[in-house]
Amino acid sequence: MAEIVGVVERLWRYPVKSTAGERLLEVAVDDRGLAGDRLYAVRDADGKLGSGKNTRRFRRMDGLLRLGSRLGHRLDGPELLDPLGHTVTDPDAFLQAYLQRADVRLAREDGVSHFDQLPVSLLTTATLDWVREAAPNALVDERRFRPNILLRTPPGTPPFVEDQWFGHEGELRSGVRLAFVRSSERCAMATAAQPGLPRAPEILRVLTRAHQSRLDALATVHAPGLLRVGDRLRLH
């Protein structure tokens, strides 16, 4: 029997990886995730993608989180926004000057996914409210955790309820089906400063102590469709 576990309160996509996101009222979802999400990235001459961390695939490029990106109804290329929210006319030239790297450019995904992990990230208000209580001196906002879906959960829902959904499917009104797999391990990017949010290292400390630095529910898409604010999520 399916149980309603929450209602979609906000939708986010991040057209350029590691930049601030774009808030949406509705968006198409397919096997890759939300249409246009992390479809572009800042790529250097070694083929590494700009990120908040250094790995085999990613290169830390401080400052990207202070930039914004949006697609609107277009999927042919994003608008890049400077730290004041103004549209950049020449993204490559701007990025090279802003990052002080002559080898970077804005690059569309070319067969190698720009995602760190799985296509869709969902965070509940129950968990977000817990972070606010556990780190009362920090300015806590879902933008720090970069979810695609913020799900409003009923009063009394325990924090980290997302953990109980792993191995189950959630279905939304349009028929979109998400298969919940695991949570994200959080890094210093969740504590970094961005427009409207000062640096907050205490957030990672409380997550590490309470939940092994993990937060959200990562999912694959088992059935495509249109995702809307106000949709109810039924868990099977």
Rank of each mutant, 00 (worst) to 15 (best):
L197E: 07
D103H: 01
A219W: 08
A192W: 13
P136C: 12
R10D: 06
Y40E: 00
A217S: 03
E79Y: 13
V181A: 13
R173V: 14
R209G: 05
R214F: 12
L233A: 04
E142K: 02
G63T: 08
A35C: 12
D31W: 15
V120K: 03
D116C: 03
A223Y: 02
T124S: 04
L11V: 00
G167P: 01
F180N: 03
P15F: 13
L172K: 00
E185W: 15
M61H: 07
L39R: 09
L80T: 08
E133P: 13
A219E: 00
P224Q: 05
A126P: 05
R13Y: 11
A20C: 14
P201G: 12
V161N: 06
L71K: 08
E133Q: 14
G21K: 01
S69I: 12
G72E: 10
M189D: 10
P91K: 04
E142W: 14
L150Q: 06
H114G: 05
A179R: 07
L151M: 01
R173Y: 11
V29L: 00
F160R: 05
P154C: 00
E22Y: 08
L64H: 05
P224K: 06
Q96R: 09
D141H: 09
Y40K: 05
A210I: 00
F58A: 08
G111K: 02
A200S: 10
V140P: 01
P155E: 10
L49C: 11
V27Y: 10
D44W: 04
L80A: 00
V229M: 01
D90H: 12
D37H: 00
G230Y: 07
R108E: 04
V140K: 02
I4H: 11
E202L: 14
G196Y: 11
P198W: 00
T153D: 03
A223P: 07
P15H: 11
L233W: 04
S213K: 12
L123D: 09
L122G: 05
L139I: 13
M189E: 13
T87S: 14
L49S: 04
D231A: 08
L49M: 11
A126S: 10
S113V: 14
R74E: 07
D216K: 12
R43M: 05
R144Y: 07
Q212M: 15
R177K: 04
L233N: 10
G21F: 05
V42F: 01
L25A: 13
R60D: 11
